[in-house]
Design a protein around this nucleic acid. Structure first.
Length: 159
DNA sequence: CGTATTTGACCTGCGC
DNA sequence: GCGCAGGTCAAATACG
């Protein structure tokens, strides 16, 4: 079972704004993973997982899109920073999973782990181990429902 | 013995 | 300028 990000949302009432369609990357998840929600950070250079989480719920429940959520004065605090020179969207999704190590078809090298504010769980940092590929991802458990794992991808694979 | 992970130290941006 | 929070580095360690 492959998941293509062009139309991933299971909720038929989900409203896709133009921001919700990433131009290039397709991520393939494993059979045992269920893609429940998708968040795409395309505009903001600093946006937190928590904010993404809230924004996406306003998508699902109210049908508002990414842009209007922003206009509703949601504050983006404790943002995930983008490195200098990096372009393209960050893509994050929640999966209901026992395991935090999920096989998404790429080989990852773990390079850090941090406890983050407002979340008792640890955030793990991975880098794609393919030579010259600078894609990173962060993996952490949902603060509000630890049966979910939040994965954030940053960058596009060059292979 | 070579490679991956662990983990505290270090770096950096941002708000005050 | 200082402190905090998040992100990264790298030496030590684990592991095959």
């Amino acid at each position: 079972m492959d998941y293509n990000f062009v139309n991933p949302h299971p909720n038929p009432n989900f409203v896709h704004s133009t921001h919700m369609v990433p131009s290039s990357p397709h991520f393939i998840l494993s059979d045992y993973l269920r893609l429940d929600d998708i968040f795409i950070d395309q505009e903001s250079h600093s946006q937190s997982i928590e904010s993404l989480y809230k924004v996406t719920f306003s998508h699902a429940n109210q049908g508002s899109n990414h842009a209007t959520s922003k206009n509703n004065n949601i504050k983006y605090k404790n943002g995930i920073k983008r490195n200098k020179g990096e372009v393209g969207p960050n893509i994050a999704f929640r999966t209901r999973s026992e395991l935090e190590i999920m096989d998404d078809g790429y080989k990852w090298r773990k390079y850090g782990k941090k406890s983050v504010k407002n979340n008792p769980n640890l955030r793990n940092y991975y880098k794609c181990s393919s030579l010259g590929c600078n894609v990173k991802k962060r993996v952490e458990r949902d603060r509000d429902d630890s049966s979910y794992v939040i994965t954030t991808y940053e960058g596009v694979h060059n292979h």
